[in-house]
């Protein structure tokens, strides 16, 4: 991973996780899960706009907006799927407001660097990798790079 490509917000989230013991990392993931923002009204009534992340074990949907080169990321996942919600919330908090270049530059293996592999299992981490991949893909689609 090229350190320089990792946006500061995501680097801080990663460092916060790595500073904790395994068990506390799960608690922090749960905090992220609880912090996933509600969808703004213009989207809460338009579930059709959202893309389902098929690779995740529970239903999670994302939608990307790009305006003036700035990325906004929206995600929704049920409360019964706290791990998936936690992954989505990390990405929303770390990505929302970044530029297109910054988002596309995020290393694809970012989810594997959070120190969650032992606490959550590698299988489950794959869902987050898919979330990041689909987010980048939507960004590319919005700016006509696909």
């Amino acid at each position: 991973m090229t350190e320089s490509n990792l946006p500061q917000a995501l680097a801080e989230i990663r460092d916060d996780f790595l500073a904790l013991e395994q068990r506390e990392r799960l608690e922090m993931l749960l905090e992220f899960s609880n912090e996933l923002p509600e969808l703004p009204e213009r989207y809460s009534e338009h579930p059709d706009l959202f893309e389902r992340v098929e690779e995740c074990q529970s239903p999670v949907f994302i939608f990307v907006e790009v305006e003036g080169g700035v990325v906004r990321l929206f995600a929704t996942a049920p409360k019964e799927a706290p791990t998936t919600r936690g992954f989505a919330s990390i990405l929303v908090q770390g990505i929302d407001g970044l530029t297109v270049e910054e988002v596309l530059g995020i290393p694809d293996d970012f989810p594997n660097t959070l120190g969650l592999t032992a606490a959550v299992s590698p299988l489950r981490i794959r869902g987050m990798t898919a979330l990041l991949g689909r987010t980048k893909r939507q960004v590319r689609a919005r700016v006509g790079q696909l």
Partner: peptide
Amino acid sequence: DEDVLLYET
């Protein structure tokens, strides 16, 4: 559970 955080909720 399948979801590793569900118990905590």
